[in-house]
Amino acid sequence: MLFNYLLRIADTNLIMSHRLSEWCGHGPVLEEDLALTNTALDLMGMANSLLQYAAKVEGKGRTEDDLAFLRREREFFNTYLSEQPNGDYAFTIMRSFLHDAFDFHFYTQLQTSKDETLAALASKSLKEATYHLRHTSTWVQRLGDGTEESHQRTQKALNELWRFTDDMFDTTDDDKKLIADGIAADLQIVKANWQKTVTEVLSKATLQIPAAAFMQLGSRTGKHTEYLGYLLAEMQHLHRAYPGAKW
């Protein structure tokens, strides 16, 4: 139960980190290239710690590398949002912003978890998430309230990504038990805070939240969009081709 909950958080960090690392060497300017890869490294660090902890909780002798590189698509529990391809810069920024606003409020709640390891990891990540959110919310405002073209691209990104936002707050019955036990973060509270932040920033950015639309749910139980398989093929290739490779 806790194992699966840890995978949800770890996988979202891992997959988002991989997506951001795809920008390495391709950022629009040197400074942003480095900013995105800095964030990717923060997320990777969190994924690493959480997968280590998950492996320990599972108690079957698997390592964090086994969990990252030897699971299949349906055994990953990352959010739909995190696996979406980078698109243009506005798309990447919007995807990160929606995610970072979640992370910020999520870790704020998780800090008070009765699970001491989770609480400690949450406090550490909250500092990083605070910066990530600051970085992406200023970019959302800059692009949304920028030129006609940047506004249009950012609005389009928001329209395309919005249907994946409810998915971040999806919970299984096991999650609900963990929430009741004070171990997992209460996603109802996270959602209310997330909506507040997102509404505020998007309104400053002169962007319109899409009117009530279809919301795609399912990643919490291991369902994915068609993009995750390709991402895993690339991410896991080396480890599968050279099992146990070290550097």
Binding site: E31, L34, N38, T138
Partner: peptide, 20 residues
Amino acid sequence: SVHAHDKEMALQNARDLYTR
């Protein structure tokens, strides 16, 4: 030095490039 379009961006870019 860094490139940036506004002061907040300059500060963030400086943070990302020079204090990591």
